[in-house]
Amino acid sequence: MRRISRLGWTAYAIAVGVIALDQAVKFWILYGFNLPARLTTPVIGPFSLTMVWNKGVSFGLFRADQDLGRWLLSLFSLVVAAALAWWARRTERGLMSLALGLIIGGAVGNAIDRIRFGAVVDFLDFSRLMFPWVFNVADSAISVGVALLLVDSLMSERKPTS
């Protein structure tokens, strides 16, 4: 078995950081700020904090209202995170390491919510900017990670075929 690359460890560290930040912010939203009791709180300009219990995947897609769906989504998130962690162990490009760490951390952060609460805690609301979804730190990490993964794939050198 090949050793984990330095950038693989970097991806794991980023994932742990995303999970910690995501769960800390959600803890504050639920218990410190008590957003569930407030429902919506304007913050600044078009930004509000709005409490949403998301039973689907990112941005409320593919709702899982039944308990089986909740566990299947949790399992799927963890399997994807494990597959990406396996891929990350051999990465040799910094942008890919960052992207994989963000996606792994976001997937695990949301899986933790699904397991603990039966739904994902969403609260970042920019609907006044015509962005209709309420999301969280983990969703943001996944979205940015996927975008960076696409950029990395476009930037990586391709060996010409002979």
Rank of each mutant, 00 (worst) to 15 (best):
V121W: 00
A99T: 01
A20Y: 03
I142M: 10
F62D: 09
F126V: 08
V79D: 02
L148Q: 08
S5Q: 07
L148K: 08
R6H: 04
G101Q: 05
G109H: 06
G101I: 09
G17P: 00
A107T: 04
D152C: 14
M130K: 14
S97M: 12
N34H: 13
P46N: 06
G118M: 07
R2M: 08
R89P: 01
A15E: 04
L75N: 03
S97L: 04
G8H: 10
G94R: 13
L102C: 09
G109D: 06
S156T: 15
L35K: 06
A107P: 02
A13L: 14
S5V: 02
M96D: 14
L124H: 02
S77R: 15
I103A: 06
I142Y: 09
D113L: 04
L68G: 00
P46C: 07
G94I: 01
F131D: 00
G45K: 06
V57R: 12
R89H: 09
A147D: 11
P46M: 07
G69M: 14
V137T: 12
D152H: 15
V57F: 14
W53R: 15
D152W: 15
D122Q: 04
V120S: 06
N54H: 11
D65M: 03
R93Q: 14
S156G: 04
L72T: 11
L129K: 04
I103R: 01
A141K: 03
T40Y: 02
W87D: 01
G94D: 01
S127Y: 00
L72R: 07
A99R: 01
L148N: 11
T50W: 11
R93M: 05
V79F: 15
L129Y: 04
I104L: 03
L30C: 10
L39N: 12
V52Q: 11
L30T: 09
A111I: 11
V25E: 03
S97Q: 05
L98E: 00
S143P: 04
K159Q: 13
